[in-house]
Every structure is written in structure tokens, then in C-alpha cells.
């Protein structure tokens, strides 16, 4: 799966999901992937339709919002220094400790099916989740993603 290095943030240190979403959204915005109101829409969506997934060994979150807030498709990836609570998808009362966040900028779901499916497949792979949570640099992060891709082919 292709994630641009400029959209990777490693070991970021935040206490709340709002700060994380804001920081990742800002990166996407600065690089021209999303509209001005993308961030507030993602925050609003996350509050109403939470995206935490109880993956193993760490939970993962996949925040996103409507296609009209997206200029160019892309995925931002952040690994968190400490797990941060997100509500889980489909059950807001269940909080999960998220260590990896994929913020999705999707503009045409039909065209991005494979990317999204690969992403979900990756999240279900314990080894990849564990390796991603442990990376210390963008290069290491990139390598984990490439290895996953290679192993699939």
C-alpha cells in the first residue's frame, strides 16, 4: 500500500484524539490533499461515527470524512508515543487504546477499493500492527509497509 513519506508522523506525543486528528489533518491540508474544512469535518465525524478498531496487539483508528472535502486522495499515518483512547466503531461505549492512526482522504470510493481493502487487511495482521507501533523513523515505517506489500504479492 502506498503511503507518501511526507504523510507519515512517527511517535507523536498527544493525549487526546482531537489533538491527533488536528495535527494529521493539518499535514494533509498543508500538502494540498484536503479542503480547509476537512479537519472540522473529521472531528465531527469522529464524534458521531467513531473509527477505533480493536486490532491486536494495539487498536488502530481510521478517521475520515465525506469525499467532497478531499482534493487529492491520500492516507496519512501516525504512530503514537502512548496509546490514546478512541471510541470504537459500532460501539461508542467501548474505548480502545489506539497506537496507530490512518487518516483517510478518499475522493472516489469506487477507485480506492483495493487501497482500502489492503489497509484493512494490514490492520488485521498482528505482526504488521506490532511492527508499525514500534518503528522509530519514517524509513522504518516505510519498510514495514513495503514488506507487507511484498509478502502479499
Amino acid at each position: 500500500m502506498q503511503i507518501d513519506k511526507e504523510l507519515m508522523m512517527i511517535g507523536i506525543d498527544f493525549q487526546t484524539k482531537e489533538d491527533i486528528l488536528e495535527s494529521m489533518g493539518t499535514r494533509l491540508h498543508e500538502l494540498g490533499y484536503v479542503e480547509d474544512d476537512f479537519i472540522e469535518n473529521v472531528l465531527d465525524r469522529e464524534a458521531n461515527f467513531p473509527t477505533g478498531l480493536p486490532a491486536s496487539p494495539y487498536a488502530v483508528a481510521i478517521p475520515h470524512t465525506d469525499t467532497d472535502k478531499v482534493i487529492e486522495p491520500g492516507i496519512a499515518l501516525a504512530t503514537l508515543k502512548e496509546p490514546v483512547p478512541f471510541s470504537s466503531m459500532g460501539n461508542a461505549e467501548l474505548e480502545v487504546g489506539v497506537k496507530i492512526v490512518f487518516m483517510l482522504a478518499v475522493d472516489a470510493p469506487g477507485e480506492q477499493v483495493t487501497t482500502l481493502q489492503n489497509l484493512i487487511e494490514m490492520v488485521q495482521d498482528e505482526k504488521v500492527v506490532s511492527n508499525l507501533a514500534a518503528v522509530r523513523s519514517i524509513d522504518e515505517c516505510s519498510k514495514v509497509l513495503e514488506d507487507f506489500k511484498a509478502q502479499k504479492n
Partner: peptide, 16 residues
């Protein structure tokens, strides 16, 4: 269905 009709429902539709 999902919250946005964008991401997770795309994956789920493919798998279904």
C-alpha cells in the same frame, strides 16, 4: 452502511 458511505462500507461491500 457506514458513517460516510466512503471507507468502511467500501471494504465491507467488497468482502460481502
Amino acid at each position: 452502511m457506514c458513517g460516510t458511505g466512503v471507507a468502511t462500507s467500501t471494504v465491507v461491500t467488497g468482502k460481502m
